[in-house]
Computed example of a mutant assay.
Amino acid sequence: MLEHFREGDELYVWRLNRLGRSLKNIIDLVLSLSGKGVIIKGLVDGVDTSTINGSTIS
C-alpha cells in the first residue's frame, strides 16, 4: 500500500499509533510519506499534516 501513494493522496488513520509498532517506526513512516507529499490525518488525535501545525513534524 505504501508504495502506491502519490503526492496529494490522503491517509486517514484512527489514531497515529496504528501506523507502526514503535514510535521510531511511526515517525519514520510519517516523515517518508510527508516527503512524498502524502497528507496524514489522525481521526481521534487530531493529527493533520496538511496544516501548518501538523507539518511541523517534518
Rank of each mutant, 00 (worst) to 15 (best):
D45V: 14
N25G: 13
L23R: 10
R6E: 13
G37Q: 06
G42Q: 06
L23K: 10
R15G: 00
L19G: 11
T49W: 10
L2E: 15
E10K: 14
H4V: 12
Y12K: 14
E3W: 09
V44G: 00
S22W: 05
T56G: 00
F5N: 07
G35Y: 00
K36I: 04
G35S: 07
V13Q: 06
G46Y: 06
E10R: 10
F5K: 06
L16T: 15
N25F: 05
L31D: 01
L2G: 15
R18E: 12
R15W: 01
V47D: 02
V47R: 02
V44L: 13
K36N: 01
E7P: 13
R18K: 04
S32Q: 02
L33H: 02
G8S: 11
S58H: 09
N25E: 15
S22R: 12
K24N: 10
E3Q: 14
D9C: 06
N25C: 02
N25W: 00
I27P: 01
D9T: 11
S50Y: 07
I27S: 06
K41N: 13
Y12Q: 08
R6A: 10
L29G: 00
L33I: 08
V47E: 04
M1K: 12
D45C: 09
I26N: 11
G46N: 10
I40K: 07
T51K: 12
V38T: 06
S34I: 05
R18C: 07
L29R: 14
K36Y: 00
K36S: 05
I39Y: 00
S58C: 03
G8R: 12
E10W: 03
R6Y: 03
M1R: 08
I57N: 01
G42R: 02
I40F: 07
K41M: 05
L23I: 11
K24E: 14
H4R: 15
Y12L: 15
S55V: 01
G35V: 02
L23S: 07
N53E: 13
N53Y: 04
D48L: 07
N53K: 13
T51A: 10
K36F: 00
K24Q: 14
M1N: 13
K41L: 09
G20D: 08
